[in-house]
Simulated scan of single mutants.
Amino acid sequence: MRRSMKLAAVVLSGSLGIASLAACGAKSDSTSGSSSATAGAGASGLKVGMAYDIGGRGDQSFNDSAARGLDKAKNELGATVYEAEAKTGEAETDKEQRLKDLVSSGYNPVIAVGFVYQDAVNKVAKDNPNVKFAIIDSASADQPTNVTSLTFSEEQGSYLAGVAAALKSTAKHVGFIGGVQSELIKKFEAGYVAGVHSVDPNMKVEVTYLTTPPDFSGFTDPGKGKQAAQGQLDKGADVIYSAAGSSGNGAIEAVAGANKWAIGVDSDQAAQPALQKYSARILTSMVKNVDVAVFKYIESVKNGNPITGVKNFDLKEGGVSLATTGGHIDDIKKQLDEAAAKITSGQTKIPTAPQG
Rank of each mutant, 00 (worst) to 15 (best):
A271E: 13
G304S: 12
G257Y: 01
F313Y: 14
D314T: 01
K296M: 01
Q276N: 07
A323R: 04
D234K: 15
S267H: 02
S279A: 15
Q269Y: 01
S285L: 05
S247F: 12
G236E: 14
A256Y: 09
N303M: 06
E317K: 11
Q276P: 10
K296A: 05
A323E: 04
L275A: 02
V301M: 10
A262R: 11
K302G: 02
S285Q: 03
K226A: 15
A251V: 03
N305H: 11
A274L: 12
T284W: 00
D291Q: 02
G319K: 04
A256N: 06
L275F: 10
Q232D: 15
A274D: 14
V294L: 03
D266V: 03
G319W: 01
N289V: 02
G236V: 15
Y278M: 04
S267C: 06
V301S: 09
V310E: 13
A251K: 00
K277F: 00
K311V: 12
K277E: 07
V292P: 02
S247A: 15
V294D: 09
W261L: 00
I263H: 05
V294A: 04
A293T: 04
H328W: 07
K302S: 08
A262V: 06
G231C: 14
L283A: 02
G231R: 14
K226E: 13
I282D: 11
V290K: 01
Y241D: 10
Q232F: 14
N249L: 00
V301W: 07
A254H: 08
G245E: 08
A243K: 10
A229M: 13
L322N: 08
G319D: 06
N259M: 02
A254E: 06
G236H: 14
G236I: 14
K311F: 09
E299G: 04
K260H: 14
Q232T: 10
Y297L: 08
A228L: 10
Q269S: 03
I282C: 09
E299W: 00
Q232S: 13
D268V: 04
M286L: 08
A254S: 12
N303S: 08
L283R: 02
